[in-house]
Amino acid sequence: MMDVKDRYIIDTIIEKCEGVRDPALIILQNVQEILGYVGKEYLEYVSEKSGYPLVELYGIITFYPQFKLNPPGKNTIKVCQGTACHVRGSDRILGTLEELLKISPGETTENRLFSLESVRCLGCCGLAPTIMINKKTYGRVKPSNLKNILAEYEEVDQYVVE
């Protein structure tokens, strides 16, 4: 939910963009960067303040994959689906993660601990299949390892691996 702080942040962003031609994208990028995602309330507030119709802003954020409509989890898991990882079974990695976390790529777990993303190439094909959690890369991942890897990020009593 939006609070005074969020409103203030968005007001400042829009103020800064005054004089910029067609600032919609820049405003949204800033909102995403500072607030972490562009939720429905944020978008409605941006529309109200900047005068851009909501439908146009919604079109922009659904067009660019960089925008997140839902708040991301505390930890972002990126699963590489590039060629090298693909031939070494990355779909099984992704499938196992989906099963463990009970979410699909682009979604966040209910307790907001993990979000799952599938990405094209992490640039370390020699280590395929790879996943990346926050800034840490894991190479030669096996489906059976995943439980242990996730456990590193779990806070006690917040997430229980079956």
Partner: peptide, 8 residues
């Protein structure tokens, strides 16, 4: 401003 294009 009710309908517009979304996704890609």
């Amino acid at each position: 401003h009710t309908i517009g294009i979304s996704q890609k």
